[in-house]
Amino acid sequence: MSDFVTFTLYGLSDGAILALAALGFVLIFKATGVINFAQGELLLIGAFTVYTFFVIFQMPFVVATLLGVVVAVALGVVVERLVLRPLVGENPISVIMVTIGLASVLKGAVTLFFGVQPQRQPKILPSGSLEFAGARLPLDRVSAIVIAAVVLLAFTVFFRYSRHGIAMRAVADDQQASLTVGISVRRAFALAWALAAVSALIGGVLLGDIEAVSPSLTAFGLLVFPVVILGGLDSVPGTIVGGLIVGLTKNYINGFWDGSYAEVGPYVLLLLILLVRPYGLFGQTRIERV
């Protein structure tokens, strides 16, 4: 029983961070139709910019995070402008490949400056643990769940009520129509990338604090695919449910069975979903069928 509670907590915290990473992915896909293979690298860049400001430049954590957000926004906008904009209208393989190229450059840049070893970073989240139902629950994971939930809620509110959020949903729905009512599609595209980079930054910092600030954070990025396919590529609530399911599945397999199966488990799940319900649990059923 206590094992079960522990694995559930690990699964939920992994899932919450996955949901943050997947949120960025879905934002980009919804607004611009781009499948972003560099999502894991955005996580990595986020974690390492905060690390740079926080540890290397010795700034207070809040300042470091704010500067990290500024860098993330700038990176998102620059990537959208320089890399993705020239490829509007190209076939999907080209767009996928350009994000893969981007991923390679970002990861190469990080490992060039910081090496492949994990970096030491002082603990940010509380480090104690909590007794619950006979299980010891590390407090950092509990707080990661809370933070992720708050951020996801903030994004949801942003999309539902703010001017820019509504504009972005309009662009995602129909670009032509939103152009005719005077919404800037370009700004929506840039905003999507900027917000994706910011949500990845938050996920990266949380993950870096729980595990370690290391280049292997990108492995987490590939897990985004099972999440978004499960939740539906264009569904924001889907990322939360998908993230939690994938996080739990991974940790249950890891805990009760074998670590190596935990790596392949989410992908088997993914193949099954694609065969049965390719548009995901919450996605729109307008997927192109052959």
Partner: peptide, 8 residues
């Protein structure tokens, strides 16, 4: 890695 990505 960087060159590879840049080339693509």
């Amino acid at each position: 890695m960087i060159f590879f990505g840049l080339l693509i």
